[in-house]
């Protein structure tokens, strides 16, 4: 049952395992469940945002605004809770709604005015980042008890290991993402849209609705990721998650999603995020290697995956034509 279309994702999973095993052989204390779980704990927010990004990229678009949206979410949450004194039960739904609305507006601009997603989400990126500073240019530290408890609660697993609540949220998001992508009409329409927008129109699929919803979903995911990021950092700051959109895009591509749209898996993105995590972990275990190697290695991986995709798709189109 090993099918050719699963090749990219198999490569990704294999790469992750090779890296993890290599790390295990090289460093003592690397091969433990907790190291694996820490990958999740440290990358929960990236995982959530990458799910939204996967949908956007599969639909043939791109969303550069996600990093700024996270920052805006942390900022709005922090200021409403610390300065205005609202309850988290009001604040969290509110910021999620802001994210979704923001994405929806960008999707509408992209669809109705036929402007490149790159440009629209670039404007969104500027806007969200700028709005953070309108709220405040300083860090707002959160000492709300709910947020503190969300940050500090450890969910213990058998064997003395633990995860955080954010990990639970991220895993649920992954599960929902897989379900939506694979088992709902919306999910399948996203794939169709990325495969050929013209065909999607002629087959009578709701192209406008799907396109706008995709960006709405991505906006929602970045806001949710922002909430988790707030738990993680316990502060709101305009510089939070700077450049995170690149990490998210890299994770999606390394996860086997075609940047030209139409092909991709949420599960692949999961492993794309984990690979980034493993690279960071290995580098921190190595000690002598510095953090910038992460970027170089991710760049190299991006390059190989993009070239790999290119060969994959040219062979396909040559067969068609």
């Amino acid at each position: 049952m090993l099918k050719k279309q699963y090749l990219p994702i198999i490569v990704t999973v294999a790469l992750f395992m090779v890296m993890f095993v290599a790390g295990a052989f090289r460093y003592t204390g690397f091969f433990s469940l907790q190291v694996l779980l820490n990958l999740l704990i440290d990358n929960a927010f990236l995982l959530i945002v990458a799910i939204g990004m996967t949908f956007v990229i599969i639909s043939g678009g791109i969303d550069l605004s996600v990093g700024s949206m996270i920052a805006l979410t942390t900022m709005v949450s922090a200021s409403l809770i610390q300065n205005v004194g609202w309850s988290p039960w009001v604040v969290i739904p509110l910021v999620l709604m802001i994210g979704a609305t923001f994405g929806c507006a960008m999707g509408a601009l992209i669809h109705y005015f036929n402007i490149q997603p790159f440009i629209v989400t670039l404007a969104g990126m500027f806007l969200a980042r700028g709005l953070c500073y309108v709220i405040s240019i300083n860090t707002i530290t959160i000492n709300n008890t709910f947020y503190m408890s969300m940050a500090q609660t450890k969910i213990h697993l058998p064997g003395g290991n633990f995860i955080s609540i954010s990990v639970l949220i991220a895993l649920v998001a992954v599960a929902i993402g897989i379900y939506v992508a694979h088992y709902t009409r919306f999910g399948r329409n996203v794939y169709a849209l990325g495969g050929s927008e013209q065909s999607a129109v002629l087959m009578g699929l709701p192209v406008a609705r799907t396109k706008i919803l995709v960006y709405t979903l991505s906006g929602f995911c970045s806001a949710l990721s922002g909430v988790v990021f707030t738990f993680y950092m316990l502060s709101g700051y305009g510089l939070h998650a700077n450049g995170l959109e690149l990490d998210a895009i890299a994770a999606v591509v390394i996860g086997g999603t075609l940047l030209t749209g139409g092909v991709g898996y949420i599960a692949g993105t999961f492993f794309g995020v984990m690979i980034q995590g493993v690279i960071q972990t290995i580098i921190s275990f190595e000690g002598t290697l510095s953090s910038w190697w992460t970027k170089i290695v991710i760049g190299l991986l991006l390059f190989s995956f993009i070239v790999f995709q290119r060969i994959f798709t040219t062979r396909r189109s040559s067969r068609r034509g």
């Binding site: 601009l109 109705y112 005015f113 036929n114 402007i115 440009i119 629209v120 670039l122 404007a123 969104g124 990126m125 500027f126 806007l127 980042r129 700028g130 709005l131 953070c132 500073y133 309108v134 240019i137 305009g238």
Partner: peptide, 28 residues
């Protein structure tokens, strides 16, 4: 004003310029 707020202004400039360049927008 904090210099970071330039970003908000830039966002609107990008939008306006792109809307003007967008054929669909002009047509509408």
């Amino acid at each position: 004003v904090p210099p970071e707020i330039t970003l908000v202004v830039k966002a609107f400039v990008v939008l306006v310029v792109c809307l003007i360049q967008s054929e669909a927008f002009r047509k509408k």
